[in-house]
Amino acid sequence: MAYLLLYVDDIVLTASHPQLLQQVITRLSHEFAMTDMGPLHHFLGISVSRDANSLFLGQAQYARDILHRANMTNCKPCNTPVDTSPKLSATDGALLSDGSLYRSLAGALQYLTITRPDLSYAVQQICLFMHAPRESHMAFLKRVLRYLHGTLDLGLKLTASSNLSLVAYSDADWGWCPDTRRSTSGYCIFMGDNLISWSSKRQPTISRSSAEAEYRGVANAVAESTWIRNLLSELQVPVSKATIVYCDNVSAVYLSGNPVQHQRTKHVEMDIHFVREKVQLGHIRVLHIPSPHQYADIFTKGLPRYLFDTFRSSLNVFASPRSS
């Protein structure tokens, strides 16, 4: 089996045997003008460091370029990207006279979340105000850059493992957006011990209860888990066990298996039936987890430093081995 990852004219190749890998490279070279650059060390701005059992993915140079663009290469670092205060409103503060720098930095930070899941929630909040950024929003963005300055060498560690089981953590706040009262949902999905997918996103509709907000978050995690399971099947690595989805809301867990439709939940009927179908097929199990162990909290709200650091390391975000 050989896998080829292609983006325009950049290719990453791997195979089950070195001989097969060389055969594929040779065949491609006969068809296209290409250069074999050896073992993977850099791809689309992402640096790759390898040891005997793991890969480290980082974007330190890209992060330095962002700080240089913002003229914050010598700023004072801070410990977390977001404080625990209530969320910003779209009307807080005066409008920026020119929002182009704000939009440029926000877009650049989005790409950084490829290897920095600890920034996902902060960047999601920044992007809510790109249409009309204000001074308070720029101050918030600068706090994120200060955190980035102090954590330039952090990145995502992937470890070799024979464990192919999928485990997801799903969380949602309830109506915390001061302008729309929409909820923010987040999830993270692990294959074995490796984080492979994560998201922080504002929900498209208003939820009328915390259970509804949490359940919509569960549905998002189940949809992503289902896609990953299908992808792994196509890659000839099928997942035999049910995917476990952890949620810290008891009502949302109960809804995933209860066949009785309640009057107060009929307006989330499609999400309910979607999740229940996967549960009945044995592909998904939704279980309760206490809030102190809910890693997805880092994708829905600002956390105190100790909890933020704990969850960040649980997501396999560590310092580059070159910096230690």
Rank of each mutant, 00 (worst) to 15 (best):
A2N: 10
A2L: 08
Y3M: 15
Y7R: 11
D10W: 13
I11A: 13
H17Y: 09
P18S: 00
T26F: 14
R27V: 05
E31V: 11
E31P: 00
D36S: 13
D36Y: 07
L44H: 03
G45W: 12
V48G: 02
R50E: 12
A52I: 10
F56R: 05
F56V: 07
G58H: 15
G58W: 08
G58L: 05
Y62A: 07
R64K: 15
D65W: 11
A70C: 08
A70I: 07
M72Q: 04
C75R: 07
C75M: 06
K76E: 13
C78K: 07
C78E: 01
N79H: 12
T80Y: 04
P81Y: 07
D83N: 14
A90T: 08
D92E: 10
L96T: 01
S97R: 10
G99N: 02
Y102D: 00
G107L: 02
L109I: 01
Q110C: 07
T115F: 03
A122V: 04
V123H: 00
F129G: 00
F129H: 10
F129M: 01
M130K: 00
V144A: 08
L145P: 00
L148Q: 04
T151P: 05
T151R: 04
L152A: 08
L152Y: 02
D153G: 12
G155K: 11
G155Y: 09
K157V: 12
T159E: 02
L164G: 03
S165D: 13
A168Q: 02
S170Y: 05
D171T: 06
A172E: 06
W174A: 06
W176G: 15
C177R: 02
P178S: 04
S183K: 02
Y187N: 02
I189E: 00
F190C: 06
F190T: 02
F190Q: 01
G192P: 05
G192Q: 02
N194T: 01
W198S: 03
S199T: 01
R202A: 01
T205D: 00
S207K: 04
S207Y: 07
S209Q: 06
S209K: 08
A211T: 12
V218F: 12
E224G: 11
S225I: 04
I228H: 01
L231R: 00
S233W: 10
I244E: 11
N249Y: 11
V253F: 02
L255M: 12
V260C: 14
H262D: 03
R264N: 14
T265K: 13
V268I: 15
H273N: 12
H273T: 08
K278I: 11
Q280H: 10
I284N: 07
V286E: 11
H288E: 06
I289L: 03
S291N: 12
R305G: 00
R305M: 09
Y306L: 15
T310K: 09
T310Y: 15
F311V: 05
N316V: 13
V317N: 08
A319G: 12
R322D: 14
S324M: 15
